[in-house]
Nucleic acid binder design. Structure first.
Lengths: 231, 231
DNA sequence: AGGCATTCGTGCGCGCGTTCACAAAGTCCG
DNA sequence: CGGACTTTGTGAACGCGCGCACGAATGCCT
């Protein structure tokens, strides 16, 4: 079975939008919509129609001129390109508030990222069960990663422990890390890291808020954060 | 007292990095470090030194050639520019798992974003107390926003309720929204929206993982996600 | 005081991503 | 069957942000 090779390198910005398109397309499919135009999809995704077409063109020429894109087929293609044709088990490091919330968050497993394990360094946390997953000691990390073929690790530790968690993850063989700790992780070359930082997001909003006030007179300035959508 | 005007428009990319610099600088200040060079800060932030200098130059010429930047002063300047000289109370819509976790997350209040209120549409949730904050009904949103002078709203509802939450927030006068629901929000012009989407982040990682495997032979490709740091 | 080492501030070129605009390709209808 | 209409796919221009490289400014040492 010849798994088709990725056509070309897809720009980072496009990769970041594909999941959004995918979610929308799945919604449309659930509502029995069979076909959608770049215009329609653009509106739902809050972006420019030309951008949608260019983004989708990286997957191949899967549209029909005069008609649009077949929803089901597009879902399949995006899934394939994003590597979502099979599950990616993840391991969560840190069983504190955040780790527990993440483990309990249904959207994980349902979307193809089952929780292969939750580990913590604190022996008193080991053994407790969160959302059906037993917390294990961090020393078991290697074993979990290897037996469950985990490629993605989630850092949900306090800031001070985050770098150590990342080190252990990479040493265990994990090649992608999703970091929730407000820390800049140092990782070996070739390891992907994405971070989710609440405080940073709020502070960015704060900047634009302050700017709005600073101007004081006109409230026009479209100080959109760049990731927002406007009606 | 003349509150200095924002000098120029600061690029979005820079605004997104300032909070990172700020956190690092505060850490350094706590460790009694009085001065730091763009090189040093760059290393800690995992970015290019020239970028650091250019970013900081948007705030003004606050460095000393041959020496570097005075940490305490830089902290003050970044704080001022980001509008962090005073608190920004936030209101959380949705008292489910996520809403509770967010309300309980200490990093909120400590970093200048106290939780002014948590609201939910479900009467059975109203009245319960989360992390010292009593959950109120969503109909009280307007009152909370006005009496507490809230500018920032957090959407922590299920996807199906997210748009309604955003509508209510903007109607109540909120001008910035942090959206945790996997939905593209439609908001009036001039409203800032930032989103935090778990599934999207994981799917982006999935893409690069799949790519790594697809290539099959070399494991070199520096498939960094663009927001990561490498050692 | 003078020279040297260090580090900032920034002009400039480059590459990426966004957007426009249009030809190509297909549908639909009379 | 032909012509009008719709929508895709993409070439090209534009703009932004990144990083280099270097002049300018400051501190330090002799």
């Amino acid at each position: 079975m010849p798994v088709e090779r990725p056509r070309r390198r897809i720009p980072e910005a496009t990769v970041a939008r594909l999941p959004v398109y995918l979610r929308i397309l799945i919604e449309q499919a659930n509502e029995e919509v069979e076909s959608i135009s770049s215009d329609g999809l653009a509106e739902l995704a809050g972006v420019n129609a030309a951008k949608v077409r260019k983004d989708l063109s990286y997957l191949g020429s899967y549209g029909t001129r005069g008609v649009g894109y077949e929803v089901a087929f597009l879902v399949y293609q995006i899934r394939r390109e994003l590597g979502l044709t099979h599950d990616w088990p993840v391991v969560i490091v840190g069983a504190g508030n955040l780790g527990q919330a993440l483990a309990g968050y249904g959207g994980f497993g349902q979307r193809g990222f089952p929780v292969a394990g939750v580990v913590d360094i604190d022996p008193s946390k080991v053994g407790s069960v969160i959302a059906g997953v037993r917390v294990r000691h961090i020393d078991d990390l290697d074993q979990i990663v290897q037996t469950r073929h985990v490629n993605i690790g989630v850092v949900a530790t306090p800031p001070s422990a985050a770098q150590d968690a990342a080190d252990r993850l990479t040493r265990a063989g994990v090649t992608s890390i999703l970091n929730f700790a407000p820390v800049v992780l140092a990782v070996p070359n070739g390891i992907s890291v994405r971070k989710v930082d609440l405080a940073v997001e709020l502070q960015i909003l704060s900047y634009y808020e302050q700017r709005r006030m600073g101007v004081g007179l006109q409230a026009i300035g479209s100080s959109d954060s760049g990731r927002g959508a406007s009606a």
